[in-house]
Design a binder for these strands. Sequence first.
RNA 1: GGAUCGGUAGCUUAGUUGGUAGAGCGCCUGCUUUACACGCAGGAGGUCACAGGUUCGAGUCCUGUCCGGUCCACCA
Length: 905
Amino acid sequence: MLPKAYEPKEVEEKLIAKWQNAKLFTARVDKNKKPFVIVIPPPNITGVLHMGHALNNTLQDALIRAHRMFGQEACWVPGTDHGGIATQNVIEKKLSKEQHLSRHDLGREKFVQTVWEWYKDCGDAIFNQFKKMGWSLDLSEGNIRFTMDKQRAKSVYECFKRLWDKGYIYRGKRLINWCVRCSTALSDIEVEHEQHAGKLWYLRYKGEDGSDGIVIATTRPETIYADAAIAVNPQDSRYKDLIGKKVIIPLAGRSIPVIADEAVEKDFGTGALKITPAHDATDYEVGQRHALAMLTVINDKGKMINCPDKYLGMDRDLCRKETVKDLEEAGLLVKEEKYTNAVSSCYRCGNAIEPYLCEQWFVKMDKLAAPALAAAQSGELQFHPASWKTPFVNWLKNIQDWCISRQIWWGHRIPVWYCRHCSEKGLSFSTDKQGREQLVKVSFENGAQPIVSFEKPAECPHCHGHDLVQDPDVLDTWFSSALWPMSVFGWPDETEELNYFYPTTAMVTGYEILYLWVARMVMMGLEFKGQLPFKDVFLNGIVRDKSGKKMSKSSGNVIDPLNMTAKYGTDAVRFSLLMQAVPGKDIPYTEESITGARNFCNKIYNASRFILMNMEGIQGPLPRPGQAKELADQWILDRYETAIKTAREGLEKFNLASSANALYHFLWGDFCDWYIELAKQRFQTPEKEYVMSLCVHILYDTLKALHPLIPFITEEIAASLRPYVGENEEFLLRQKYPEFNAALLNPQAVQKMETVQGITKEIRTIRAQFNVPPGLKIKAVLTAQDEKDLSVAQEYADYIKLMAKLEDLQIGVGLSKPKQTATATYGQTAVYVPLTGLIDFEKEKKRLEKDILSAQAAMASRQARLAQENFIKHAPQEQIDKTKAELAAAQTLLLQAQAALADLA
RNA sequence: GGAUCGGUAGCUUAGUUGGUAGAGCGCCUGCUUUACACGCAGGAGGUCACAGGUUCGAGUCCUGUCCGGUCCACCA
């Protein structure tokens, strides 16, 4: 005998091995089949799987498995992302913690080698977790891609080269976002903006002529040493006379002009703005318009430079405090007030971003964005949910050039070389701890001559010299990610795979990387392949905690997917996520939802166990019954087909929550609660084999339908059922997903069954309310005004008797009400349940009074509706009939209840 | 400041062309009934945020307001 509860652990281990051994998840180029392709959003090699991965990949897995079962060539491409800054940070922390070493102690070469070693271990760990989750990725040797492996490096180089040749890549001096902690430039979208409670300081800049000068308001007093001017709005009458005069920077003593610029808001602060071109984006623009000096006072480490000696080398935060203190002492701090402003921070480490003026590599985006914009606007590119289209379009419309160089070591090194002889002035070198000279900075302003090449060129094309050095920077990690849907299939090589699998079918990812990743894939795909990389973008929500907060280690609200799978089984974790995966919606996740899914798995297991128990002595295979024998069969086939229809549609339209819900309610609410219960009485009859064949086929097909969602338990149970359904194929994944068969829909049967269920429920309610012991057989009387209302009950009296546990059921027109009876009404039918000795008259009185109230309310609303001339005139006949029927039912209920109440008294 | 999503039972929520609200959890009552207490049967609990409008009829469509969330944005 099988255990009472499903135990997932062993089953899962067994199946993971089987699936892998059977090479179940491979995809081949098969011109006879339509491919269904998803490339995995490659996880960073930074650590372990979290709930976000669990959701995102479970969605993909469900789609991939389903479409494989739909008969398509399903290809799900596995891989990982080298994760530039994020990974470098992890390794640096690890080094510092374990060996008290910085990356500079190791040197570039050794550090990069250390990260490669880390990748080997971490990659394996990630894919082991993927296997545990049941994700149908082909993880065989050679099928796993990595954004830094050889082929992907080739793609990156090719992309760089082609963009360079088109003139889209350039190096320029700009004010960029600099993270002093990660010591690198970041692109605009790698910066997060947060409201921060800070202060606004009002500072006096005295006139050069000894006058009071001007008062400005700033949130960053430490940058005054870089001031190049004070700007006022040209329309501002208050400052008209000051324009063109000079004022003195406090503490620094340097004179700067007062200028006029439209960018200044008259109403903010004092209406006067200090202009610090090298440390603020707006100021930079003003500075350019007025050809102001661009003095940098904060260096790449966040330390003060080019400022009064007192502050030299000071950290920028400390310098702010000291400057404010000194200003106050000097009597130049007019006032300070509390002020909340948006502070930008690094999306990788959270430290405050410093706008920093330096040379970086950029990609010109306007030409790349245009076709992507057109594709989104025309609807060729589809978003699910569609509401993401507008933000996507707007982002592309306002696109900025993309800063692609990063001053870190881990990543694709920029494929640009310099000849030392030709461009010495533009290159600066330093010596590392091992005494090796390293190129640390390039400036085109001073004449560095770029040679774009994947490998070290043999010689300099100008002077034929051999002293060539590579640009020290690496590319933004998103540069390689942008190529992912192409590079995974070998682009730029014209491989068979690329031809067959590109464009891919769908992109499943989180909306938080819509711009960072999705937009760039779209642009690159259109640029290099002339085709969208995918037509459907399916954006899943974020898994949050119960109160809607993001899960994070620091908040201590993390639910770990691997703990949960160990505790409840993988299927339970998957199903709990899928049940809630309404497109675009965040999921407030709780352990209780996993419990619920686990319970469902257990329900499946027990229903199957019950059916298998009753299979003893029956010789398989049983044919799928061609037709229904009686109402219950007609009804369950209708319910089954309806569920399959919804399940298929959900899988086709990316609404997996709808699929999961339909199958859940069918299996539990219809199949277990009603069909199996009704089937039990047929076990004693010659019909048993027929009923079992229907049960086993419906169950088996439902398992198939559920398999993309919960692969383990379905595979396990299906294996036991296979002999009875005559299936030879070992794996569900290789079988066909159930087809929806409209011929088996049967609305009449459903309606009849609803009557049976309705009457049954009335009787069950009475039993429950008067605490009738389940063993006690009681009887009931059904009566109505005419034969018509009783005919269904008459025909299926057996069902009602069985499901309501009745000994006897009397049905007839105009029957009288027995003594000591509880009364209920279903439609036009009165339901009497004699309860001699059991009835509680007080309780019954309350029940009836409640019935009367609800009947009166229902009558009033229906009468009001029917009294409206316009309702009769405009509403469809069907609605009018329905309303009339409801009125009649309410009337019957009222009369019944009133009569019963009178009887009680 | 712009955009966008949401406000439905105590909690989390579903609701596809407008027809008069459904689920899961929690709570209460009863129950070892030929699988399942991770279960069965039943119950309580909702002016669908608010105000207008369109309509015979609005949770659903339109307008406005309030409250949340998120994304984008150079107001120092």
